[in-house]
Write a protein that binds this DNA or RNA. Structure first.
Lengths: 189, 189
DNA sequence: GAAATAGCTTGTCCTATGTCAACGTTTTTA
DNA sequence: TAAAAACGTTGACATAGGACAAGCTATTTC
């Protein structure tokens, strides 16, 4: 149950078994269904999710009803409505499992307690933030000034499994192009 | 010289005068000219910059020669080629002062020493990363699916001084629209 | 302070991509 | 397993905004 999470942590910092088990004891298993919503728009996010199996999607819907996907967390990754989790303001987004999934959930309180009391876990959080920041930057760079074809090539180069794993519609809403355009581009390679 | 920096720190964490002075002692003043480059493409970034006066721009140039501006730090803000600073890979971007500026510079080594040894400074770094992440997210949301007019309205709402402070060309390259389009939109409000 | 360089504005034209619709296929539900 | 719903593909059409160029203005440099 905790193998992936332990691997995630031990890959990023040195930590003894006792502390590892202590950390894991705050993560509770959660089974979810396809398309289950974990955090709703305007809800304040109180949990951090680790994906053991399945996939989490973070997305939003604007006033015209258009969906934008912001982030996908697959097996072995963390995901939540991080801006809301951090500053405890209502989320401008939804958190959803797009497949039947198996998650490990930690409450915000316990998460920040671990960050504060266990320096190694503080490092983990720092690494999450650093990586999140770098990923967001790459996405801005990756998309700004790119046409639709270049965006698709970019995602293939940077996240090879992405197009195989998520639906056309969701992929298009992540890339900021219409499903029709994505479909046309894929048909030409 | 150090007023703004001290204000930045004391606004974000509790710290005594002695530690404050200790922290400040690692920041060295640097005068720069208009359009001076501080970090070049493919250089590995070794410094963090605090803006006392003037303005830092982070930007990149793609293979077709098109500039994209990623971030502007004004008086009282931090800026650097953060992805490169964090992971010590060559930067895919430039750091530049777009006006005659007065900076306070700290080396990466000293910066991370402070982060590690002074918990309050660790909190400052965490706050920088959290804010950077949230800002990047808002930008992705703010721009995805927006047309040119909406982008301009967005920047006016979120950074009211932005269009007054930077050139049309740079503003356009930040918004991901052409200078012509920005000019046309501004003329209609 | 004159010359040169860079930036801003605005017109014309053109293309990439969105919208809409029709049809076929896959997935879900009962 | 049958019906319904959602999704993917493709065609026809419309349009936002980019490219380019010309002229004007502001800024820099010497």
């Amino acid at each position: 149950m905790y193998e992936l999470l332990k691997k995630y942590i031990s890959n990023r910092t040195q930590i003894n078994d006792e502390q590892m088990d202590f950390i894991c004891s705050f993560f509770k298993p959660l089974q979810t269904k396809r398309n289950e919503i974990l955090v709703r728009y305007e809800e304040t996010c109180q949990q951090y999710y680790f994906v053991n199996k399945g996939c989490i999607r973070i997305f939003t819907i604007n006033k015209e009803g258009i969906e934008t996907s912001r982030f996908f967390a697959f097996e072995g990754g963390f995901g939540t409505a991080l801006p809301s989790f951090i500053d405890q303001q209502p989320a401008y987004e939804y958190v959803q499992t797009i497949e039947k999934s198996e998650l490990l959930v930690i409450s915000r309180t316990n998460f920040y307690n671990l960050v504060t009391t266990i320096p190694e876990f503080g490092l983990i959080y720092r690494a999450i933030l650093e990586l999140g920041f770098i990923t967001a930057q790459k996405r801005i760079y990756g998309f700004q000034g790119f046409d639709a074809l270049e965006k698709v090539q970019w995602i293939i180069a940077n996240q090879p499994h992405f197009l195989l794993r998520v639906s056309n519609k969701m992929a298009a809403s992540y890339l900021g192009i219409s499903p029709s355009t994505l479909s046309r581009i894929k048909s030409k390679l």
